[in-house]
Design a protein around this nucleic acid. Sequence first.
DNA 1: CCCTGGTCCCAACTT
DNA 2: GGGACCAGGG
Length: 857
Amino acid sequence: MSFLSQLNPQQREAVETTEGPLLILAGAGSGKTRVITYRIAHLIENLGVMPESILAMTFTNKAASEMVERVDKLVGGLSIAKPVISTFHSFCVRVLRRDIEALRIPSAVPGNPPIGLSKQFVIYDEADQQQLVKSVMRRLGIDDKQTTPRAVLAHISWAKNHMLDPQEFYLQSSDPKTEKVAQIYAEYKKELAKANALDFDDLLLEAVRLLKAVSEVRDYYNRRFHYVLVDEYQDTNRPQYELMRLLAGTRHNICAVGDEDQSIYSWRGADIRNILEFEADFPEAKIVRLEQNYRSTQNILQAASAVVANNLKRKGKNLWTSRQGGTKVGYYEAPDGENEALFAADYVSKYLRESIERGENARAAVLYRTNSQSRLFEEAMRRYQLKYHVVGGFSFYERAEIKDLISYLKVIHNVDDSIALLRVINTPVRGIGKATMEILEQIAFETGASLWSAIGEAIRRQLLPHRALGALKSFRDLIEDGRAMLAGNYVERLERTAQPTWGQPPSAVQRSEAPQTSDPADDQIAFDPAAFDFGTEDNAGEGARATPDDGEPFRTPGAPASTAEILKFLIDRTGYIKQLEAEDTPEAYSRVENLQELVNAAMDSRDRGETLDQFLDHAALVSDADAYDEHAQITLMTLHAAKGLEFPLVILAGLEEGLFPHSRTFLQPDDIEEERRLCYVGMTRAMDTLILSRAIYRRRYGTDLPEASVPSRFLEEIPPQLVEELGVPRRQAARTRVPAPQTQAHYSYEDEDQSASWTGQNRPPAKAYSGRTYNSIENIAEFFASRGKKFNVAKLPVEEPKGKRGFRPGQKVRHPKYGEGTVYQREGEGDEAKITVQFPRFGLKKLMEKYAQLERA
DNA sequence: CCCTGGTCCCAACTT
DNA sequence: GGGACCAGGG
């Protein structure tokens, strides 16, 4: 009971109103998360509600895990049962994995399998979706120059977010272009079904459809969950809204928390009406407003409020803070983007140093509108030797090598996943080229089956040249072996096929054991937590592997192999890592490291007792925002990713018309309002200091000449008395000529006398990035690798060439095209021999000795 | 059949 | 700044 005394009267009212619909309008920094977690704790501790009958839904995994942690602190140790705190998407995946087969309908043809997805469905990410749309468009003969797959996908997603199926979408389309999109949408949907796959939007849609269509399933959840909380309610879309209503059942114990001023996801289908019309949906609803801000100073709050006050579509509120005054909002006008970034680095480093000296919370964030802005800030931070953390951009699971291996797992998990299959069928190359693939696709199309079936068909009916068939067979064997490992009958398969293809056969005692059925206790009493394992762990029932057994592939013979074991098998058998190591470039080694990291992730997953499909779900559902590290001193991220966070210092960069607000939003007044809310979100992240900045000249694409920018309209919306201009007087900006592209020296502060400017004494070190001099070739390669660039370091000649006819390093040779050169290196033997030759005019060339018509010179 | 280099075209936010 | 695609050489 004691923790309730830590709340203000409004917060307390929100916490103690447990029955019936409740809308909590929580202004920025008003203690929203605190209210949600205390409310859960109150239900459990004071009212004796069973934890597992509480469901809280958030948007990001990060928000969910923070909530879990905080609830744990409040009621920790009280009970093993836990409330279910999950993202919408993860929740839906769990619901679907359990019961999606209830949506199946029997086939019209007796004996045929039922129509509809199986529990083994896979989740398609954006890249997968694009591939699929592209192939559909190709087949329909639609020119992808005029209508890009990207644009089509955006339309499809829009339709899904508004719960329109292809027919409905077609009926409402008014122009030929949209009609075409509807046609693609219909085909796309069929293809997904064929692949036993769902895209992100489907996860929500299908869960809603399931709950609507199957009353047993709905009843199950209604018996199970008595209290439902929804976080970030302003950002829910139509399917999420319906899901919430379905889960609320007849009890209507629904608690929605949100702030209409922070609605920033309308492009994802978020419907601000959900929050504005909550009372209409639930007439008996109670509304509590949290208007005391505990985060920001008065100056910051006033400035932010003044901006958002220009919006028409809002309920309006009066946020107040007891933190009177505070430093003014800073505004810095940089001559260009590079300077803006250097200013930020300079300011942050000074700020952090001073904070640390005063023993204060030393954390800062640079926020921007678009991910591509991060590059300049990263470079500036490195120049100042500051450690920073970037949220977003390229995520781990988007790396090519990671996607390759994940795709292998996907195919093993579900052979009909044609998109994954396409990705790996010739990766690493095994001689399955374009011609072969065209025939396979033809077969698949004609038989109406997946590519996998087409492979079987092609082999059975000998529809391809010998060599292609061989390659296909070896691919099929690889996948079948993986599947056998997964099913736990690898040994049987080995004995049956009598050709051990991989390493040494596991020293296993053969045991015929059916692949574990995932959930034998499907229909249990409503509140057995084990029956519905939403928790973070505790799947550790019957099927779980024993202790970790790194090193040896099989400790439990005959049992299904873990994801990690299958991964190791794949890496070994495909020679993926070996091939990378042979490349012998910094980039290749960093890929190897990534793969090792993937195996580690799989081991962690196994230790949590997860199965392959759970591992794949995780890989599909982790997001960039989840990579946020709260201990990092400096964080760079987009405004969207910053939602829900707070920092003592916030630098909000790129306040320019066209960038922020973004040019794509100019046409629609509603879109501009959303940009303004985004600005509000950004400004209210700041606790003590808020700096806004803008570049007078900005380069749009790497090489183009910089363009002059117009200050963002949001700047003018801030009352001038709250703002203080920082740094360089205007004359300096005027003096700045349009810089020639890529001339680093121009921006170094030593160039111009700016001792009186904002740079103060804290000059950037003269050395290049991270203070290292990159003078040797290895260093340069390392530098490029650290920036994700390709840079091949020629291997020093170490081996003695053995070939009798071969050319030796040092020899002079003549090439018909490149002229005379000197042999630098020789690799491989016989037909495989490659020699690297230094040509005076053309540089290093790696040539196949067999083909290149080299002569002695 | 694979690899490289050149060219074209794109570039908002994210579960 | 970079991904996708294509042509040409090995």
